[in-house]
Protein backbone atom coordinates (compact mmCIF):
# COMPACT_ATOMS: atom_id res chain seq x y z
CA UNK A 1 0.00 0.00 0.00
CA UNK A 2 2.79 2.39 0.95
CA UNK A 3 4.66 1.54 -2.23
CA UNK A 4 1.49 2.15 -4.26
CA UNK A 5 0.95 5.53 -2.57
CA UNK A 6 4.60 6.43 -3.12
CA UNK A 7 4.32 5.53 -6.79
CA UNK A 8 1.05 7.44 -7.07
CA UNK A 9 2.59 10.50 -5.40
CA UNK A 10 5.58 10.22 -7.69
CA UNK A 11 3.27 10.11 -10.71
CA UNK A 12 1.28 13.10 -9.47
CA UNK A 13 4.50 15.01 -8.82
CA UNK A 14 5.71 14.25 -12.30
CA UNK A 15 2.40 15.40 -13.75
CA UNK A 16 2.47 18.54 -11.60
CA UNK A 17 6.04 19.17 -12.66
CA UNK A 18 5.13 18.96 -16.33
CA UNK A 19 2.11 21.18 -15.82
CA UNK A 20 4.22 23.74 -13.97
CA UNK A 21 6.79 23.66 -16.75
CA UNK A 22 4.10 24.24 -19.36
CA UNK A 23 2.57 27.04 -17.28
CA UNK A 24 6.00 28.63 -16.95
CA UNK A 25 6.66 28.42 -20.67
CA UNK A 26 3.21 29.75 -21.38
CA UNK A 27 3.59 32.65 -18.99
CA UNK A 28 6.99 33.48 -20.53
CA UNK A 29 5.30 33.54 -23.92
CA UNK A 30 2.54 35.79 -22.63
CA UNK A 31 5.06 38.16 -21.10
CA UNK A 32 6.96 38.19 -24.38
CA UNK A 33 3.83 39.34 -26.15
CA UNK A 34 3.37 42.23 -23.79
CA UNK A 35 5.89 44.92 -22.95
CA UNK A 36 8.56 43.57 -25.29
CA UNK A 37 6.38 44.85 -28.13
CA UNK A 38 6.96 48.44 -27.05
CA UNK A 39 9.38 50.58 -29.05
CA UNK A 40 10.59 54.13 -28.57
CA UNK A 41 9.18 55.54 -31.79
CA UNK A 42 9.73 59.29 -32.03
CA UNK A 43 11.52 61.93 -29.98
CA UNK A 44 11.27 65.71 -30.11
CA UNK A 45 14.13 67.31 -28.17
CA UNK A 46 13.49 71.01 -28.79
CA UNK A 47 9.86 72.06 -28.73
CA UNK A 48 9.59 75.74 -29.55
CA UNK A 49 6.43 76.03 -31.57
CA UNK A 50 4.97 72.55 -31.51
CA UNK A 51 2.65 70.28 -29.55
CA UNK A 52 1.41 71.63 -26.21
CA UNK A 53 0.74 69.53 -23.12
CA UNK A 54 -2.44 69.67 -21.02
CA UNK A 55 -0.89 72.48 -18.94
CA UNK A 56 -0.30 74.62 -22.02
CA UNK A 57 3.46 74.10 -21.84
CA UNK A 58 5.87 73.14 -24.61
CA UNK A 59 8.52 70.58 -23.76
CA UNK A 60 10.42 67.81 -25.42
CA UNK A 61 8.61 64.51 -25.65
CA UNK A 62 9.14 60.79 -26.17
CA UNK A 63 6.63 58.71 -28.10
CA UNK A 64 6.38 54.95 -27.59
CA UNK A 65 4.63 52.59 -29.99
CA UNK A 66 2.94 49.23 -29.45
CA UNK A 67 4.10 47.01 -32.31
CA UNK A 68 1.83 44.12 -31.36
CA UNK A 69 -1.72 43.16 -32.29
CA UNK A 70 -2.71 43.09 -28.61
CA UNK A 71 -3.21 45.84 -26.02
CA UNK A 72 -0.10 46.39 -23.89
CA UNK A 73 -0.10 47.93 -20.43
CA UNK A 74 3.13 49.82 -19.81
CA UNK A 75 2.28 50.54 -16.15
CA UNK A 76 5.18 49.51 -13.93
CA UNK A 77 7.73 49.77 -16.74
CA UNK A 78 10.51 52.35 -16.66
CA UNK A 79 11.72 55.20 -18.83
CA UNK A 80 15.16 56.59 -18.23
CA UNK A 81 17.81 58.91 -19.62
CA UNK A 82 20.53 57.37 -17.47
CA UNK A 83 22.11 54.02 -18.44
CA UNK A 84 23.17 53.54 -14.80
CA UNK A 85 19.71 54.15 -13.43
CA UNK A 86 17.20 52.03 -15.38
CA UNK A 87 14.43 52.70 -12.85
CA UNK A 88 14.61 56.48 -13.10
CA UNK A 89 10.97 57.04 -14.07
CA UNK A 90 8.56 54.31 -13.07
CA UNK A 91 5.39 54.60 -15.14
CA UNK A 92 2.62 54.77 -12.52
CA UNK A 93 0.21 51.91 -12.08
CA UNK A 94 -3.55 52.30 -11.85
CA UNK A 95 -3.98 54.64 -14.80
CA UNK A 96 -6.12 53.15 -17.57
CA UNK A 97 -4.36 55.36 -20.09
CA UNK A 98 -1.18 53.31 -19.76
CA UNK A 99 -2.90 50.59 -21.77
CA UNK A 100 -1.73 51.11 -25.33
CA UNK A 101 -4.00 49.71 -28.01
CA UNK A 102 -2.61 47.56 -30.84
CA UNK A 103 -0.35 49.55 -33.17
CA UNK A 104 -1.04 52.73 -31.20
CA UNK A 105 1.12 55.27 -29.43
CA UNK A 106 1.62 56.91 -26.02
CA UNK A 107 3.38 60.22 -25.52
CA UNK A 108 5.57 61.05 -22.51
CA UNK A 109 6.47 64.68 -21.83
CA UNK A 110 10.13 65.16 -20.87
CA UNK A 111 9.45 68.17 -18.64
CA UNK A 112 11.05 66.84 -15.47
CA UNK A 113 7.82 67.32 -13.51
CA UNK A 114 6.49 63.87 -12.69
CA UNK A 115 3.83 65.40 -10.45
CA UNK A 116 2.06 66.67 -13.59
CA UNK A 117 0.76 63.19 -14.27
CA UNK A 118 1.42 59.72 -15.54
CA UNK A 119 2.78 60.92 -18.85
CA UNK A 120 5.26 63.46 -17.48
CA UNK A 121 8.69 61.92 -16.79
CA UNK A 122 11.12 63.15 -14.16
CA UNK A 123 13.86 64.11 -16.58
CA UNK A 124 14.29 66.50 -19.47
CA UNK A 125 15.98 66.27 -22.84
CA UNK A 126 19.10 68.41 -23.16
CA UNK A 127 19.42 70.10 -26.61
CA UNK A 128 23.15 70.65 -26.12
CA UNK A 129 24.28 67.06 -25.73
CA UNK A 130 23.49 63.50 -26.69
CA UNK A 131 20.30 62.21 -25.13
CA UNK A 132 20.17 58.58 -24.10
CA UNK A 133 16.61 57.25 -23.73
CA UNK A 134 15.73 53.71 -22.69
CA UNK A 135 12.57 51.75 -21.98
CA UNK A 136 12.85 49.00 -19.36
CA UNK A 137 10.48 46.21 -18.46
CA UNK A 138 8.74 46.18 -15.06
CA UNK A 139 11.62 44.24 -13.46
CA UNK A 140 13.85 47.25 -14.05
CA UNK A 141 16.51 44.96 -15.54
CA UNK A 142 15.22 43.86 -18.91
CA UNK A 143 16.05 46.45 -21.52
CA UNK A 144 13.30 46.57 -24.13
CA UNK A 145 14.45 49.48 -26.28
CA UNK A 146 17.03 52.25 -26.21
CA UNK A 147 18.14 55.07 -28.47
CA UNK A 148 20.76 57.76 -28.42
CA UNK A 149 19.64 61.04 -29.98
CA UNK A 150 22.67 62.96 -31.18
CA UNK A 151 23.31 66.52 -30.06
CA UNK A 152 22.40 69.44 -32.28
CA UNK A 153 18.78 68.60 -32.98
CA UNK A 154 16.82 71.31 -34.77
CA UNK A 155 13.88 72.97 -33.05
CA UNK A 156 10.47 71.49 -33.86
CA UNK A 157 11.98 68.69 -35.91
CA UNK A 158 11.57 65.21 -34.52
CA UNK A 159 13.81 62.20 -34.78
CA UNK A 160 12.08 58.87 -35.12
CA UNK A 161 11.56 55.58 -36.85
CA UNK A 162 10.81 56.21 -40.51
CA UNK A 163 8.09 53.55 -40.36
CA UNK A 164 6.41 53.01 -36.98
CA UNK A 165 8.03 50.24 -35.01
CA UNK A 166 10.59 49.40 -37.73
CA UNK A 167 14.33 49.57 -37.28
CA UNK A 168 15.39 52.52 -39.43
CA UNK A 169 15.66 55.91 -37.67
CA UNK A 170 16.00 59.34 -39.18
CA UNK A 171 14.82 62.95 -39.23
CA UNK A 172 11.08 62.79 -39.85
CA UNK A 173 9.58 64.98 -42.60
CA UNK A 174 6.88 66.13 -40.19
CA UNK A 175 6.33 65.98 -36.45
CA UNK A 176 3.71 63.34 -35.62
CA UNK A 177 3.01 63.16 -31.86
CA UNK A 178 0.68 60.23 -31.03
CA UNK A 179 0.11 59.45 -34.69
CA UNK A 180 1.87 57.35 -37.31
CA UNK A 181 5.31 58.52 -38.43
CA UNK A 182 4.48 57.32 -41.91
CA UNK A 183 0.97 58.18 -42.93
CA UNK A 184 -0.54 55.58 -45.21
CA UNK A 185 -3.42 56.99 -47.21
CA UNK A 186 -3.59 54.01 -49.57
CA UNK A 187 -3.40 50.24 -49.21
CA UNK A 188 0.01 49.44 -50.59
CA UNK A 189 -0.76 45.77 -51.23
CA UNK A 190 -3.93 46.52 -53.16
CA UNK A 191 -2.29 49.32 -55.15
CA UNK A 192 0.50 46.95 -56.03
CA UNK A 193 -1.96 44.41 -57.38
CA UNK A 194 -3.87 47.11 -59.26
CA UNK A 195 -0.69 48.31 -60.92
CA UNK A 196 1.03 45.03 -61.67
CA UNK A 197 -1.78 42.51 -61.94
CA UNK A 198 -4.85 44.27 -63.25
CA UNK A 199 -6.10 41.11 -64.99
CA UNK A 200 -5.57 38.83 -61.99
CA UNK A 201 -3.40 36.25 -63.77
CA UNK A 202 -0.52 36.78 -61.33
CA UNK A 203 -2.77 36.19 -58.34
CA UNK A 204 -4.34 33.14 -59.97
CA UNK A 205 -0.99 31.55 -60.81
CA UNK A 206 0.55 32.31 -57.43
CA UNK A 207 -2.43 31.27 -55.36
CA UNK A 208 -3.20 28.12 -57.32
CA UNK A 209 0.47 27.12 -57.12
CA UNK A 210 0.33 27.49 -53.34
CA UNK A 211 -2.96 25.57 -53.09
CA UNK A 212 -1.56 22.77 -55.26
CA UNK A 213 1.75 22.79 -53.40
CA UNK A 214 0.01 22.44 -50.04
CA UNK A 215 -2.25 19.64 -51.19
CA UNK A 216 0.49 17.86 -53.17
CA UNK A 217 2.63 17.84 -50.01
CA UNK A 218 -0.30 16.42 -48.06
CA UNK A 219 -0.79 13.83 -50.82
CA UNK A 220 2.85 12.77 -50.77
CA UNK A 221 2.95 12.53 -46.99
CA UNK A 222 -0.25 10.52 -46.78
CA UNK A 223 0.79 8.30 -49.66
CA UNK A 224 3.85 7.33 -47.61
CA UNK A 225 1.85 7.04 -44.41
CA UNK A 226 -0.59 4.78 -46.27
CA UNK A 227 2.24 2.51 -47.45
CA UNK A 228 3.66 2.33 -43.93
CA UNK A 229 0.20 1.69 -42.48
CA UNK A 230 -0.57 -1.10 -44.95
CA UNK A 231 2.80 -2.73 -44.20
CA UNK A 232 2.18 -2.42 -40.45
CA UNK A 233 -1.30 -3.88 -40.89
CA UNK A 234 0.13 -6.88 -42.74
CA UNK A 235 2.74 -7.40 -40.02
CA UNK A 236 0.06 -7.29 -37.36
CA UNK A 237 -2.13 -9.74 -39.30
CA UNK A 238 0.82 -12.09 -39.70
CA UNK A 239 1.63 -11.87 -36.04
CA UNK A 240 -1.97 -12.51 -35.08
CA UNK A 241 -1.98 -15.58 -37.33
CA UNK A 242 0.99 -16.82 -35.34
CA UNK A 243 3.19 -17.26 -38.38
CA UNK A 244 5.92 -15.05 -37.17
CA UNK A 245 7.73 -17.21 -34.66
CA UNK A 246 8.14 -20.42 -36.56
CA UNK A 247 9.55 -21.47 -39.89
CA UNK A 248 7.31 -22.49 -42.80
CA UNK A 249 6.32 -26.12 -42.45
CA UNK A 250 6.73 -26.05 -38.69
CA UNK A 251 3.57 -26.94 -36.72
CA UNK A 252 2.23 -24.08 -34.62
CA UNK A 253 1.69 -24.30 -30.87
CA UNK A 254 -2.10 -24.17 -31.27
CA UNK A 255 -2.12 -27.22 -33.51
CA UNK A 256 0.17 -29.11 -31.14
CA UNK A 257 -2.08 -28.22 -28.19
CA UNK A 258 -5.15 -29.49 -30.07
CA UNK A 259 -3.42 -32.76 -30.98
CA UNK A 260 -2.23 -33.25 -27.38
CA UNK A 261 -5.73 -32.66 -26.01
CA UNK A 262 -7.21 -35.15 -28.47
CA UNK A 263 -4.59 -37.78 -27.54
CA UNK A 264 -5.19 -37.17 -23.84
CA UNK A 265 -8.94 -37.57 -24.23
CA UNK A 266 -8.40 -40.78 -26.22
CA UNK A 267 -6.03 -42.22 -23.58
CA UNK A 268 -8.32 -41.33 -20.71
CA UNK A 269 -11.36 -42.51 -22.61
CA UNK A 270 -13.22 -39.33 -21.76
CA UNK A 271 -14.50 -38.82 -25.25
CA UNK A 272 -18.24 -39.50 -25.30
CA UNK A 273 -19.59 -42.13 -27.63
CA UNK A 274 -21.95 -40.56 -30.10
CA UNK A 275 -24.90 -42.28 -31.57
CA UNK A 276 -25.13 -41.87 -35.30
CA UNK A 277 -28.86 -41.48 -35.38
CA UNK A 278 -30.16 -38.00 -36.19
CA UNK A 279 -33.58 -37.15 -34.83
CA UNK A 280 -35.47 -34.04 -35.85
CA UNK A 281 -38.10 -33.07 -33.36
CA UNK A 282 -40.32 -30.07 -33.77
CA UNK A 283 -40.35 -27.79 -30.75
CA UNK A 284 -43.56 -25.86 -30.39
CA UNK A 285 -43.27 -22.31 -29.14
CA UNK A 286 -46.06 -19.81 -28.80
CA UNK A 287 -45.16 -16.48 -30.43
CA UNK A 288 -45.19 -13.40 -28.26
CA UNK A 289 -44.18 -9.89 -29.34
CA UNK A 290 -42.63 -9.47 -25.88
CA UNK A 291 -39.93 -11.95 -26.72
CA UNK A 292 -39.58 -10.97 -30.38
CA UNK A 293 -36.10 -10.10 -31.55
CA UNK A 294 -37.25 -7.34 -33.84
CA UNK A 295 -38.31 -5.27 -30.84
CA UNK A 296 -35.03 -5.66 -29.03
CA UNK A 297 -32.64 -4.85 -31.91
CA UNK A 298 -31.87 -1.41 -33.21
CA UNK A 299 -33.16 -0.80 -36.64
CA UNK A 300 -30.84 0.63 -39.22
CA UNK A 301 -31.97 3.70 -41.13
CA UNK A 302 -33.80 2.69 -44.28
CA UNK A 303 -32.10 5.29 -46.49
Amino acid sequence: MIIFLYKRMNMINKKTGWLLLFALLLSTGIQAQRTTSIRINEVLVINEDNFVDEYGKRNGWIEVFNTSAGTVNVAGCFLTDDPNNPKKYPIPKGDVLTKISPYQHALFWADGIASHGTFHVNFTLDPNKENYIAFYDSDGKTLIDEIVISAGQKPDVSYGRLIDGKDKWGILPKVTPSTNNLTLDTNEKIDNFKTNDSIGIGMTLTAMSVVFLGLILLYLIFKEIGIISIAAGKRRAKKAAGDENHEPGEISGDVLAAISTALFELDEDVHDIERTILTIQKVKRTYSPWSSKIYSLREYPRK
Binding site: F212, G214, L215, I216, L218, Y219, F222, G226
Partner: peptide, 12 residues
Amino acid sequence: LISNPKLLLIGA
Protein backbone atom coordinates in the same frame (compact mmCIF):
# COMPACT_ATOMS: atom_id res chain seq x y z
CA LEU B 1 -9.16 11.01 -48.60
CA ILE B 2 -6.58 9.18 -46.50
CA SER B 3 -7.20 5.90 -48.32
CA ASN B 4 -6.75 7.57 -51.71
CA PRO B 5 -4.76 10.78 -51.10
CA LYS B 6 -4.45 11.64 -54.80
CA LEU B 7 -8.07 12.80 -54.57
CA LEU B 8 -6.66 15.80 -52.68
CA LEU B 9 -5.52 17.22 -55.98
CA ILE B 10 -9.09 17.39 -57.29
CA GLY B 11 -9.92 19.54 -54.28
CA ALA B 12 -7.08 21.83 -55.31
